[in-house]
Design a protein around this nucleic acid. Structure first.
Lengths: 146, 146
DNA sequence: GCGAAACAATTGAGGTAGTCAAGTAGCCCA
DNA sequence: TGGGCTACTTGACTACCTCAATTGTTTCGC
């Protein structure tokens, strides 16, 4: 198999990956009572690192900032996060996890772990896949976020 | 790093993969005038293999059959696919690509190829990733589709 | 300082997507 | 032939998402 064929097959798999991932996530989030979009947003809220402006969250979710506002309201109503003013810039709001939000986040990870499709791989293969994914993801983020 | 840590990191990457994939797809489909859901459905229509019942498409999209009906109507209105009765079972409808649909499908692949994040990998790494992905995907499909 | 431009977030309108419940049509088997 | 099963469709309703317009805040030129 030549390089272009391999690349094309990877792209094919990439396109098919969307429904697959959402399928797994769907089972995971049903158990914690969130919608997919809400879970995606929740997942992007940093746990330990410094808070991220809503604008940045919109970029990472590939959606309009107004949509992040709506989703943030939903998360706030459930008590999983709260919006806070940015200390240095009054225009900016950040989203911060509440203790309940942190708890849900852990449950998400636990559930996903239980349903993860990576059990089909050996320990060594998992390690390989992890480093390859890291390389792909970092390259992509660098290109997109500048 | 032990096995559980590796697995956990993979799961973390998996959850973050959803927005990433939709981000890439979004750029791809904007150029062909489809929505994400419509493109996902279009992508599942077999090109050469025998037609697939709508029911099966719903399973693969992880959504309600009625939703597949709605999306199919949209694709038909754009002339990209048409619904056909199954020759052996009058209850079953299948979705078949039109020539225009095939053309769009090729453009999707071309666009995705151009935006693919796999350029960050060497030829050998791409080959590795492909075989790992194949293993993961086949394991997952086998578990889910029986 | 002061006003204009720039920026982040929000609100409101409108459309798409998705689920659930109920209905229709075709198959199968006694 | 009739009852039950299956595949699809329809209708009602909710959630999601985007675009355009608005509000509040910062920044820059003067």
């Amino acid at each position: 198999m030549n390089a272009q064929e391999t690349h094309a097959l990877l792209v094919d798999q990439l396109i098919g990956l969307g429904p697959l991932v959402t399928g797994i996530i769907k089972g995971v989030i049903d158990e914690v009572g969130l919608t997919e979009s809400q879970a995606n947003l929740l997942w992007l809220i940093p746990v330990d690192a410094s808070p991220v402006p809503l604008k940045q969250l919109a970029v990472r979710l590939h959606c309009d900032p107004s949509n992040v506002t709506l989703l943030s309201v939903k998360l706030e109503e459930r008590g999983l996060a709260r919006r806070a003013r940015h200390p240095d810039d009054g225009r900016v709001r950040t989203l911060v996890l509440t203790p309940a939000g942190r708890k849900i986040r852990r449950r998400l990870l636990t559930n996903a772990y239980a349903r993860s499709p990576f059990g089909a791989l050996s320990e060594k293969e998992q390690s390989q896949l992890h480093s390859l994914m890291t390389k792909v993801l970092s390259g992509y983020d660098a290109r997109r976020l500048g």
